[in-house]
């Protein structure tokens, strides 16, 4: 059985008037995996996510989904790609329940309101993310970590097949990070494809089976974490001497 995957076919992209950020990217991301995007600021991590979302289109090449032997552009996924931005500006004070319900939008006709079924789905997600106690709280009243969970719940309400996250770990404390990692793994187990950007190579080493590392001058490498997270590669891409220790029971990154 040919495995399903997301394919980058010789993709290049640059914002108009600026230089090319992504050049000749070709790699595959198998579905049902957890892929981390690693790289210094400005190397195009967010851009890559935007391309996957379909929000921007490549200048050259195409991004496709290979599913059960059929290949079609990722832009035809239609609501099955969920996106969690790093920061979100929420100008109105929704209740948590109302906010999560927004995730049902791809499943609700344009001139309809949410149905009983939509309500059931969002309730289930609220339960699974331990948010039940906050159901009627306004977004302005909850903590940062809780808000993160609420936003994820909204993304999950979409019932997405692919979940994109832009630096979801960056502002979380240790406890919440652990929770999020656990959540991501659970999602992976259910067959969802998760791709997220991060600054932390150790996190990648510990939790992600796959990663894509991006560097200056359109450099990139993609594949299994084991293969990519190595001293030489990291030192190369981050431009500082780094030692990767990857032994059973001891995984660490040492920055010199």
């Amino acid at each position: 059985m040919k495995s399903n995957s997301i394919r980058f076919n010789n993709v290049s992209f640059g914002y108009s008037g600026r230089k090319i950020i992504i050049k000749n990217f070709s790699f595959e991301i198998p579905t049902g995996s957890r892929t981390a995007l690693l790289g210094l600021n400005g190397t195009g991590k967010t851009t890559l996510l935007m391309l996957l979302l379909g929000y921007i289109a490549p200048l050259e090449g195409k991004i496709t989904l290979l599913k059960d032997g059929q290949e079609f552009p990722i832009t035809e996924m239609n609501g099955a790609v969920g996106y969690l931005s790093q920061n979100e500006n929420i100008p109105f004070d929704y209740t948590m329940q109302e906010f999560i319900m927004l995730g049902r939008a791809p499943h609700i006709l344009k001139f309809n309101v949410p149905s009983e079924y939509d309500f059931k789905v969002s309730q289930k997600i609220i339960q699974s993310l331990d948010l039940a106690s906050l159901a009627y709280s306004k977004l302005g009243e909850i903590s940062g970590g809780e808000l993160q969970r609420v936003r994820i719940a909204r993304t999950l309400a979409q019932e997405p097949e692919i979940i994109l996250m832009d630096e979801p770990m960056t502002h979380l404390d240790i406890k919440n990070k652990k929770y999020l990692n656990g959540l991501i793994n659970n999602l992976k187990e259910t067959g969802k494809t998760i791709i997220y950007s991060t600054h932390d190579p150790l996190d990648v080493l510990n939790f992600s089976d796959r990663c894509i590392i991006m560097g200056k001058n359109n450099k990139f490498e993609a594949g299994e974490t084991e293969r990519i997270i190595r001293s030489k590669t990291l030192s190369d891409f981050f431009e500082i001497p780094i030692t990767v220790i990857n032994e059973k029971g001891n995984k660490s990154i040492v920055v010199h």
Binding site: G82, P106, I108, V113, Q158
Partner: peptide
Amino acid sequence: FYRWRLNLHAMDKEIAFSLGLKNKIE
């Protein structure tokens, strides 16, 4: 009739896009 979907416009553009507002028509 649009009263629920209007909420999407209050979201950040990329989020709204992911939730189905794919073009500027609406």
